[in-house]
Design a binder for these strands. Structure first.
Lengths: 329, 329
DNA sequence: CTGAAAGCGCTTACAG
DNA sequence: CTGAAAGCGCTTACAG
């Protein structure tokens, strides 16, 4: 049983497929198709359970009503929540979302980009990994609109939506200092990512501004690929060096660090702050001060920009949005 | 600058577009296109940065190399992880994934299904919500293959992959009883979902088998729509009734319950078990015994079945897979 | 070894 | 008010 097409409906009614198409696309009124014909078309389309074939429509119109979303890892709660917001907003406009996880690999990222382009997505939201400058710049020569989220390639005019990473980290570090901490560690992953590196800058700046010397051995980073071991090693080494507090660059970093500290029974006497808030922190007995990212607003802003590009191909203003993220206790 | 097509390449080389298509699809050898021509085609395709237009290919072949995934909520860690496994396995076979969240609403679920069908996805993985029997049965008349995951419409022959929900719950409840608990509560959401209802059955059965009377006032359920309030109310009421332990039907239920209990400072003296393991539990100070779902295997099994349907349209065996999930401490 | 042609299902200017 | 026709970019049997 093959799917019913516009032509099937047209044949059944003895009208042309153009008529059917116009009616079904709500352009019947404007192009003065008679009410009776329109009614018959709609009725039979309904009866036959007609579903438009988007491949055909896309081929004709060049539009797919599909967006591509490339994150580092869809199973990371931050990106999962972001995906959900994006799905909702896109859905309201009649768009579906295709997703892909880059695992912070520029190669994988590039492959996903190619696939999404081949599938003619109307626009792309992406968190570009390290070393993806060339790939992203290449994308600029395609006609497909895109917006960066959570991070942005440095020094390149591409729209992006992110939080004020430096200030977030600065505020958290300052908070620790005011609590009396002096041996403050900074734990992160993939330090080359622009957002992470800014978080590190904010940490360093806060120390300097408060007259505390920056000790590079207190700045640790795991790699994405060997994440758990990397974090565990970092924590072990920091404990050896001697610290009184830690700034976690992301929730994933914080959770793994706390899990390891708990296993080693070394939670006491340390203070923690973290960028990102998660339920894990709420349930943990260690008080931890967080910067909660406005994930909904990140998604909304990014999609607003993207849809503006999509809806008006002549619109070429670059918007780099930086949201302020505040400490929540 | 419009995208380069097969025809552009053909014109450039003075060959037919058929030749180009064959070469680019690796069928040049078999259909004996000369090595020289093939080489030239590949070279120029590369130079011009040719990208196939999938809309055109799909229209012709009827295939999109895209799968649809419908979960309850992509931001729920269980589904987010599932999505990641599905993405990986699909990706290896050259498929992309489009996702949608039903919010446990049959209407929304039906709409997502329609959209995915119109977009010609090659197959669908789905966690059907309550009251979606009619919609799912309707899908059976379409030619598009699909597999249920995490749950399955009861009494209908459709492939599904899920854990042994009843046994999981039975084991957890039995564990509590053996620890000496007698006033054991069961907290869930949307009790009408087949997987949740089975978890409840397992709980009841364990109590009976151990000779403990089932007290219906200890069985509580929140709705998906008013989740937090529902759980909080359930916990409050249970505390009033008096309990010594709780079986959490899912991690989301468990986390919200624990957050509320913690706020009310009522953690002590209670024992907890939960279906699903999460980092939240690991970091919480309350010992909690879990059934960890084999999410990777769920995804892998579901995709294996789905791809078998996709790759061989004549294959029509229905597979209902039930994985055993064991207690992990 | 390669080309000409049909056709997938739609949309849209054009003609009447 | 409606139809005939072209064309989006591909693939694939067919012919030579």
């Amino acid at each position: 049983m093959t799917r019913v097409s516009i032509k099937n409906i047209a044949d059944r009614l003895g009208v042309s497929s153009a008529t059917v198409s116009l009616v079904l696309n709500g352009k019947g009124e404007k192009l003065r198709i008679s009410k009776e014909v329109a009614e018959k078309v709609r009725k039979i389309a309904d009866e036959l359970n007609y579903r438009p074939n988007m491949a055909a429509r896309s081929l004709r119109t060049g539009k797919t009503r599909t967006l591509g979303l490339i994150v580092a890892d869809i199973s990371n709660p931050f990106f999962a929540k972001l995906a959900r917001y994006i799905e909702n907003i896109a859905g309201e406009k009649g768009y579906q979302v295709m997703f892909g996880s880059s695992d912070e690999s520029a190669e994988k990222f590039g492959r996903l980009l190619d696939l999404f382009i081949e599938k003619n997505v109307d626009g792309i939201i992406m968190a570009p990994p390290q070393n993806s400058e060339a790939v992203v710049k290449g994308l600029m020569t395609e006609k497909i609109p895109f917006v960066q989220i959570d991070r942005g390639i440095e020094g390149v005019p591409i729209s992006s939506v992110q939080i004020n990473n430096e200030l977030a980290s600065y505020a958290l570090t300052g908070y620790l200092i005011e609590q009396g901490c002096r041996k403050i560690a900074f734990v992160a992953y993939n330090m080359g990512l622009p957002n992470i590196s800014k978080r590190c800058t904010g940490y360093r700046k806060a120390l300097r501004d408060y007259g505390i010397e920056v000790n590079d051995s207190l700045v640790r980073s795991a790699s994405y690929e060997r994440f758990e071991e990397g974090i565990n090693d970092a924590i072990d080494e920091l404990l050896d060096v001697g610290i009184d507090s830690i700034v976690f660059a992301t929730n994933r970093v914080g959770i793994q660090s706390l899990i390891h500290l708990k296993e080693r029974k070394k939670m006491t006497g340390l203070q923690f702050v973290s960028i990102d808030y998660t339920d894990e922190y709420a349930l943990s007995d260690i008080p931890i001060t967080c910067i909660e990212q406005p994930i909904g607003e990140l998604g909304e802003r990014a999609l607003n920009i993207l849809f503006r590009y999509i809806d008006d191909p002549s619109y070429n203003v670059i918007e780099q949005v930086i949201l302020q993220a505040k400490i929540c206790k």
